[in-house]
Structures are given as structure tokens and as C-alpha cells.
Design a protein around this nucleic acid. Structure first.
Lengths: 124, 124
DNA sequence: CTATCGTACTATGTCTGTCGTAGTATAAAA
DNA sequence: TTTTATACTACGACAGACATAGTACGATAG
């Protein structure tokens, strides 16, 4: 299998989306493409996850939507990050650094610590 | 509010617990203390989270429980990691490395990318 | 002309891990 | 005797991710 489980990513989808909005507004389809490519094809956000994140974040005041005609004449919903959204993003970045630090203490590269055979069995 | 949100840690509580069981069996209270101290007091697992993790992981075959009398004469439920649990732990470690790699692409240290002054704030 | 594909969404309900709240029980300490 | 630390269990709420399904429209292929 391999890949990133949804439990891990949970709570960081918002952060990823906001990151992509820092420079300029964007819309669903484009953002999903950007996440895919920026992650090196390692993570693909689900459509429902993406759009529900938009809804949630707009409700929370982190982004604002506006409708605009695309080159092809189709109407799209764009999202722009707000000041509050930038603050939230910054906080999440800090939280991420902390999280990394903490979780890393519980990770051992080979998945093992000093382990002698007899530890595996025996109680009585 | 700083600290680690539960959404972030979600899915890594199990990993932390398993890490602490790699060497020897342990029990709830001790594990919670170890998580607290190993994380440098930065993360404190909730009791309910911990015990429900035990239940879930035993059901999944990652750990096995056994009851034993403690020094003080009280009966405790200890947990021992299984082979399957070790494998799961190793997988989670790999997943973690991948996750770190991916999420880090969406994190900018100051929470900002090319950004002109006026966007930031002014308290002046 | 029709079918399919890519784009751009919305709706609805399920699942699962975390957490709030609360309660039980015992030994040691105050 | 009351409090504190230890060592749990039960129950329900919550929220984010996801599965599934459907709508709509333009471009492209056959």
C-alpha cells in the first residue's frame, strides 16, 4: 500500500490549500492539481475533501469566494485568502514544526530499538 | 493557543504507544507518563484516547493484554506488542517520513512567501 | 450527431479517532 | 477522614475525511 493515510493528513489539508492561496486566488480544480504536483504525485486530495474544506474555511473566515469567468467562458468559484487565514496558516506552520519535533521522538528509522530475543516472549 | 491539535496527532497516538512497547510491556498510566516526558512535556495524551487506543489495537492484533500484580499489590493491565504490531509500527514510521516530506512542501517558515510589506500589518 | 472526457462543482450520509464528562475502585498520604 | 495518585470503564458528541452519486457544460473523437 504505502501512501499517506487520511488520519495523518487530517488537519493539514487546510494548511496546504491556504499555502497555495498565499500568492494569488485560485479554485478547486487548480488547487487539486497543484497539491498533486507539489507533493510529487505523492498526495492527491479527494474532491469532497477539498470542497468541504473550502466551505469550512470560508465559514471560518480564512478564505473568501468570488465567482469569475474563466478563459473558456465557464464560471468558476475562486477563493482568496484573508488576513485571518494568513494568521491561521502561520499558526499551523508553527504547530507543524512542533508536531514534527514531538512525533519524531517516537519514530525509529528501522522500526526497532535495542531488542533482544527474549523480550518477545515470556511472562508468567 | 499553542500545542498540538488532536487532528494532527490523530493516527499517531497508536504509533507513539507502540514505540514505547517495543522494548517491554507496559500499562496505561506509565505510557501516558512516558509520552509526556519523552515529548518534553509538549504532548499529553488524554486518558480516554489512550485506553481506547489499547482496545482498538488489541482488536487489530497489534498488542496483547495480560493482567499482573504490581509491586503495590494492585492489579494492572499490561500490554505487549505483537509481531503484527511491530510491522504496523515500521509501516507507520515510513509513512511518517513520507508525510513529513510532503507536508513540508506546503510549509513556509515564516508563514509567508514573496509578500510585500503592506500585506503584513502595521502596528508601527 | 453522439459519446466520451475533462472540468467544475453540490448533496448526503457513513466512518473513525479524539475528547468531554462521569463514574468506579484502591492504596497511600495528609 | 478527606484528598491525592493510580488505574481504569462507559457513553455520547464532534468533526474531518471519504464513498457514492448526480449535475452541468465545453471540447474532442468517432
Amino acid at each position: 500500500m504505502s501512501g499517506i493515510s487520511s488520519d495523518v493528513i487530517r488537519g493539514y489539508n487546510d494548511t496546504m490549500i491556504l499555502y497555495l492561496l498565499l500568492d494569488r486566488p485560485s479554485y478547486g480544480y487548480e488547487i487539486s492539481k497543484m497539491i498533486r504536483s507539489l507533493s510529487g504525485e505523492k498526495y492527491v486530495i479527494k474532491e469532497t475533501t477539498l470542497y468541504s474544506a473550502f466551505t469550512r474555511m470560508e465559514k471560518n473566515g480564512f478564505i473568501m469566494s468570488f465567482s469569475q469567468l474563466a478563459e473558456n467562458g465557464k464560471r468558476r468559484t475562486y477563493y482568496r485568502i484573508t488576513e485571518s487565514g494568513r494568521r491561521y496558516y502561520r499558526d499551523k506552520c508553527e504547530e507543524w514544526l512542533l508536531t514534527q519535533e514531538v512525533i519524531s521522538k517516537f519514530i525509529s528509522p528501522k522500526g526497532q530499538r535495542s531488542l533482544t530475543e527474549r523480550d518477545v516472549t515470556g511472562s508468567s
